[in-house]
Amino acid sequence: MPVRRGHVAPQNTFLDTIIRKFEGQSRKFIIANARVENCAVIYCNDGFCELCGYSRAEVMQRPCTCDFLHGPRTQRRAAAQIAQALLGAEERKVEIAFYRKDGSCFLCLVDVVPVKNEDGAVIMFILNFEVVMEKDMVGSPAHDTNHRGPPTSWLAPGRAKTFRLKLPALLALTARESSVRSGGAGGAGAPGAVVVDVDLTPAAPSSESLALDEVTAMDNHVAGLGPAEERRALVGPGSPPRSAPGQLPSPRAHSLNPDASGSSCSLARTRSRESCASVRRASSADDIEAMRAGVLPPPPRHASTGAMHPLRSGLLNSTSDSDLVRYRTISKIPQITLNFVDLKGDPFLASPTSDREIIAPKIKERTHNVTEKVTQVLSLGADVLPEYKLQAPRIHRWTILHYSPFKAVWDWLILLLVIYTAVFTPYSAAFLLKETEEGPPATECGYACQPLAVVDLIVDIMFIVDILINFRTTYVNANEEVVSHPGRIAVHYFKGWFLIDMVAAIPFDLLI
């Protein structure tokens, strides 16, 4: 008679799926529990143990900040960024110097990925580790590398530091407007667009060049630039800015003055950032001319202004700041037409079709709590990747769950009947059967004279019903998954307890 339990259901295979997918890609990662103190490590794979030199037993239950890997060259700011990422709910990448158990130093890129439950609360953290440099290539500990984003994938490793954006290309926007319009339909740009040429040739750093990471940081200074100062900065030398009595002219307006920039070969870094931020506020060169004239017309309804409409929906549905990093990277690809469009465009503009998908598509409701890094690593669709929660398995109709209350009560009843059979069957065979043979035949009273025979008949009927119930009862397979398919249940029961239950259900007393 089957006594099969499996009270692990309803099970959740999400954690096993993450481990299996990460292991298949030869990654070095740990999984931490966000619900406990210090976000203790609950799993670390073999790749991480080989990377740091510690065994799994030495890593388990330690804080996922990996303070046991810190050393003299470990930056405090990087460690603080990892700790801050564990307090938030967004994906974050941090470069930090770690030390192995043998004392060797290596520069590592740590990717902190939160995993949320159905309520939107962070319950786990996945920390992925990628070695960037070994100890002989690690720089000085005073050099802070965590304020910069990861290198873009479309640049060669040897040319990542030679990417320079020439400031004269930004200063000569109005001069290039006529050349853009003359391109017409034969050019790649839309009317009114501004073409910015980027020099990728390796050259020595000069005062006129600005690194790509500095251009990325310009967006942080746009908020500090007032509207009046932006307007004066875009007017140009024809209309000098008016300053109040006793007030000095704005240095932001002076930063885009061609006369002032041409007199000296070098520009201050602050002026460069502010000038680029001011130019980015204009949607095209037409807006710059309109600002000089004193009238700013409404933005025209053409394809170039609607190019950012799908980007707005993608940004609203993005799951991490990696989408913004990807957008900034692609927006700086050289030799393309940049349409400086305000994100607050007309909502009635139709979304044009684009061959290049900048932001990841909208994630469906079932995966809105899973970050983009987890979705990318697992390579699963929205119909396959579940949320991290207890999910009731989908069972067929008329199927009994093996952990249901009805099955528990039924098993206790069958257990009592088995005990009765084990006690009274030998007793009936030894004593009652002998008395029946010696006594007179009682054929007239039937079952009324033999109450134990009636009980034995009921017990046999219950055993037959138990066999039928076992054909529709779920079970737990070797992978700790609840199986509810009727065919698989029948095959599993035939290979197991079916023969024993059938022999126990045969009414031998009635056959004798």
Rank of each mutant, 00 (worst) to 15 (best):
R4K: 15
P10D: 14
Q11R: 14
D16K: 07
F22L: 14
A32G: 09
Y43G: 01
Y43I: 01
C44S: 04
F48A: 01
C49W: 01
C52S: 11
C52L: 06
G53M: 06
Q61V: 03
C64S: 09
F68V: 01
T74M: 01
R76C: 15
A78P: 05
E90R: 13
E91P: 11
R92M: 13
V94E: 05
E95N: 08
D111S: 09
P114C: 01
P114M: 01
E118C: 06
E118N: 07
A121R: 07
A121C: 10
V122A: 14
V131H: 13
D136G: 06
M137K: 04
A142I: 09
D144M: 07
T152C: 06
W154E: 15
K161S: 06
K161N: 14
F163K: 15
K166L: 06
L167T: 15
L167C: 15
L173Y: 15
L173I: 03
S178Y: 06
A185S: 12
A188D: 06
V196W: 01
V196A: 04
D197F: 04
L200R: 12
T201S: 15
P202T: 06
A203M: 14
S206C: 15
E208Y: 11
M218Q: 13
G224D: 05
G226C: 13
P227T: 06
E230D: 06
G236K: 04
G238E: 11
G238W: 15
R242Y: 15
Q247M: 07
P249F: 07
N257Q: 04
S264V: 09
S264L: 14
L267K: 08
A268V: 14
R269F: 12
R271D: 10
R273L: 11
E274M: 13
R280A: 14
S284R: 03
E289G: 04
E289V: 12
A290V: 07
P299V: 05
P300N: 14
P310E: 04
S313L: 07
D321P: 10
D323K: 08
R326G: 12
Y327N: 12
T329W: 04
I330S: 07
K332Q: 12
I333G: 14
I336K: 14
L338W: 05
N339R: 02
G345L: 06
R356F: 12
E357K: 09
E357T: 11
H368D: 05
Q376C: 06
G381S: 07
A382G: 11
